[in-house]
Design a binder for these strands. Sequence first.
DNA 1: ATTAGCACTCGGAACTTTTGAGTGCTAACA
DNA 2: TGTTAGCACTCAAAAGTTCCGAGTGCTAAT
Lengths: 352, 352
Amino acid sequence: MVQDHGLSDRKLIILKAIIKNYLETGEPVGSRTLSKYTDLNLSSATIRNEMSDLEDLGYIVQPHTSAGRIPSDQGYRLYVDLLMDEKEQELDEMRDKMLEKADKLDKLLKQAAKSLAVNTNYATMISAPANSRNTLKFIQLSQVDESQVVAVIVMGGNVIKNKMIEVDENLGNETLLKLNLLLNSTLNGMSIEKINLGLIASLKEQAGIHSHVVGDVLDAVAEAIHLDDDMEIYTSGATNIFRYPELRDNQSAEEIINAFEEKQQLAELVTETLASEDHNGIQVYIGEETPVKTMKDCSVVTATYELGEGMKGTIGIIGPKRMDYEHVMKSLKTLQSELDAIFYKDNNRKRE
Amino acid sequence: MVQDHGLSDRKLIILKAIIKNYLETGEPVGSRTLSKYTDLNLSSATIRNEMSDLEDLGYIVQPHTSAGRIPSDQGYRLYVDLLMDEKEQELDEMRDKMLEKADKLDKLLKQAAKSLAVNTNYATMISAPANSRNTLKFIQLSQVDESQVVAVIVMGGNVIKNKMIEVDENLGNETLLKLNLLLNSTLNGMSIEKINLGLIASLKEQAGIHSHVVGDVLDAVAEAIHLDDDMEIYTSGATNIFRYPELRDNQSAEEIINAFEEKQQLAELVTETLASEDHNGIQVYIGEETPVKTMKDCSVVTATYELGEGMKGTIGIIGPKRMDYEHVMKSLKTLQSELDAIFYKDNNRKRE
DNA sequence: ATTAGCACTCGGAACTTTTGAGTGCTAACA
DNA sequence: TGTTAGCACTCAAAAGTTCCGAGTGCTAAT
């Protein structure tokens, strides 16, 4: 994945040094600073020459004539690509914090977003996995009172949906029993995306006598299952954006925070990420590369996680371009496997 | 409720004019501006004299020697109190927007917060009503697979809670049936706050044979019901804060936004508001008065709404001290009655 | 009681100066 | 030939000026 940069070793070391230093300070870095910072004993003049070359090659830029250099998007890109190929270690006390509060999926994800934000000091988001690939585990209608029935739908990963249904006539116990039997025998274990209108129609037919009431019920169930409309997205640490002056001062900070509040734009980011998977599922968008124009002054690192069969969700970290890519990618990897682990544990427990 | 301000009519008019002008511009207002702005034809000099008096009385202050005056907290307070006593009218196209998307309570409140934010251009929050006063309508345990049972709990207002319960042994249909009967006959129609440990213990006893398994189940149910720990709070328009320079520039903006993200502090605001009801349930905290120190540079206007018997929630609007109190209070009133209306409609539908 | 007039204040805008980190280039050096 | 020292030059940011004008308080006249 490392593109063919034909850079001499020394140039590469210098470039890395520039980026690393800039990541820490956020200030343009000059030749003098570097001549001390790096191990190879080179005078500032020599470094200046190399830097001049690196600038010509497009890896670094000068914000203005008499300033030090900062990495260009292309420079970051090279840096990240190199990083990708280096092996990664473990790292976390995140695990503990995450597990202690998790009982339902939404709580879990909320918590995960938070740990990640605390751990990295960037803004984070996690999208709940789309249910379309999930399977139905259990479905049940129960009469609440004369005119109301509640449908309870349990899916894989113990995702639970509820739907109140208004009925005109009292259905009675037997009808309900029959309906429950029908629903469970037909739908159990079935993947959500296979439940289409044809199937629903056929179910209605089988329901027989009460078919019009039953129709309402089934419609409601179908609606509850196909909740595609609103994608759940949990965010945390949006205000971390303020830590980075280059974002805070730009009015872009407001827009970013707003994006985190509205979540609409984040949803786009999610679909984009899911669409183009790559590289262990970890992707790095630098500056203009990001699909969300609001974040053109940021870097966005995303990963997909998978709860069993095809239920994919997205994790995203949004920070300044000078984000600590190494740390971020480690944390993402960790969280990824963490989520996997939880799912499999859950799954195994069920199978005992 | 109007405190005894012994201000001459003229002083009052001038004070109002100052505040009104300041609400619009956000700039300190000087005598010259006023002498044109007001109807009563007074020269700037006269007004200066009056302003001098008003300053001595503490209603307005000079941010610095050679600047105009801005209202002090005390000045705002008088203004708001006067406003409170004047009659209010209707106003809304909020109604339409609100109703169109509401199906579950959480969606409804989220939507309400949003309309309110859009409508007022301030930051808003709505807390879901505490369930402690709510009543249980229906409760049911269902076997999902060999080792898992799902408890479905329906409360007034069709608030639905779910809880997955792990069981060691297969309970079997009959046991479940018995349990469901027991739970419903004992708990139905009961107020949540009346379900205490004693009652739970007695239930466990009655459950007989399976009491240890049943114990687990009941504990889980109890836990699901007593969800006090996490109060649900929906927010919207936090970024509206940025519209007001006096908040944006102060680093307080960040803190406020953060408060909206963390929601912890908002929860305090809610409990505070619910504790000290007053004045149609509408309260105005100006500057330092607010219970949340983070918002000492803001004004906070809160209202309580009630979904039937004692299920109270809180609506809050957070903005700059120079907020448009009149509009805000109108909007709050409207939303209040809106929520009431929805509840009663819902209630009547059930009773048909 | 109101107003005109005047000297005075002071924050903020605009402009200037200073500072210092940084550069490119050239000439000397290993 | 690659490296380094030295120097003149640049320019953003900080610090320091100046200027302006909205605003005040006070006094004297109406």
